[in-house]
């Protein structure tokens, strides 16, 4: 009999509803007893097929049960919601206990700053390129307008590689700056050129708190028609402010590097004293951050770029100096002695 079915259904449903403890179970109960595929819905849909005599009673009872289900559902829902804070009170945690540690490494501070520098220049359309660390003397010096015995070579104490040609020359070295990448790029491509080249460089130098024999530089080069010193200033001004903060003053002064003319030194106002003069800036109020200039016509001519048609600017900067300034690190040797107590601070 259908009526019996309804009663059975009802008692089972109320039984189960009593056992429901959370909203997920409640939803399952609703689908089972009140959903489109539930027995009750099917009974209600099939009323038309019942004999007329039964139809009335079954219909009435089924609707009654449906309403009772809905009412109980609403009531249960309410009680579940009210019950929620109670369970939390019962399970009070000592939230000050340490959390489950997930091992996390860090990138070396040099890598972090290199990424930052490359990102800034990428945003200005510079492509990241790389060149060899063991280099020919030609690329490191000669092609950069520093022939043998050029006095500027003294600025670059060189580590030479133990390799001699048949003529007795020793033409291989560890690059003393990233500038040879300029030549390699210009040899292989034609203007427009806009690249930056990060990498390791080496010097024959005794180490102390401010000198390392191995360090990183980032080189930049832009060559095209109509590139001017004003573009150099704009690009490096933008870079300095993105790296050191929008409020920084940036100073451009005349300086000398054999492979540029005019030559430029870029400095920012001292991060410690703000320009008043202190030990960090040697009382000058300024901190040099990079060397730059317009690519020397001799350098362009050597790579078959006509200096009457094209011009360009180049710049180079020491990398470790930047985190040293930013974090007040007073000893460059910390970078490559790899003490984790140092590295994990970044």
């Amino acid at each position: 009999m259908v009526l019996n079915q309804i009663e059975e259904l009802a008692s089972r449903a109320f039984d189960e509803l009593g056992k429901v403890t959370n909203s997920r179970e409640l939803e399952a109960w609703r689908v089972h007893y009140l959903g489109r595929k539930s027995n009750l819905t099917q009974i209600l849909r099939s009323l038309a097929t019942l004999p007329l005599g039964e139809r009335c009673g079954v219909g009435a009872r089924a609707n009654e049960v449906k309403e009772a289900f809905e009412a109980s559902l609403a009531e249960k829902k309410k009680s579940l919601e009210q019950g929620l804070p109670l369970s939390l009170q019962r399970e009070s945690l000592d939230v000050t206990l340490p959390g489950q540690q997930v091992l996390l490494g860090r990138l070396h501070p040099t890598t972090q700053i290199l990424d930052e520098i490359c990102d800034i220049f990428s945003g200005m359309g510079f492509q990241v390129v790389e060149g060899p660390e063991a280099e020919w003397e030609y690329y490191n010096f000669e092609a950069l307008n520093m022939p043998v015995d050029h006095p500027a070579r003294d600025m670059f104490a060189t580590l030479w590689i133990d390799f001699e040609t048949e003529a007795g020359d020793r033409p291989m070295l560890l690059r003393t700056h990233t500038s040879p990448v300029q030549i390699r790029v210009m040899e292989k491509s034609h203007p427009p050129i806009r690249v930056i080249a990060p990498g390791r460089v080496y010097r024959y130098e005794a180490t102390d708190a401010t000198h390392e024999w191995m360090f990183y530089q980032v080189e930049g080069l832009a060559v095209d028609k109509n590139i001017t010193l004003a573009d150099l200033k704009g690009t490096l001004f933008e870079f300095a402010r993105r790296l050191f903060g929008g409020g920084r003053k940036v100073r451009f002064r005349c300086d000398y590097f054999p492979f540029v003319e005019p030559g430029v030194e870029v400095a920012i106002d001292c991060l410690v004293c703000g320009g008043a003069g202190c030990r960090l800036c040697g009382n000058s109020g300024w901190i040099e951050i990079l060397g730059a200039g317009m690519v020397h016509p001799e350098v362009l001519r050597r790579v078959d770029i006509d200096p009457e048609v094209y011009s360009g600017f180049a710049f180079g900067m020491g990398v470790e100096r930047i985190p040293m300034l930013r974090y007040g690190i007073d000893d460059i040797r910390l970078f490559y002695s790899n003490d984790l107590r140092f590295l994990r601070q970044f």
Partner: peptide, 19 residues
């Protein structure tokens, strides 16, 4: 440039087409 002063040179951004 160095006698008129680098400060009197304006700052402009590269305007050439991107490589």
């Amino acid at each position: 440039a160095r006698i008129i002063g680098y400060d009197s040179i304006p700052t402009t951004m590269l305007s050439a087409p991107l490589p």
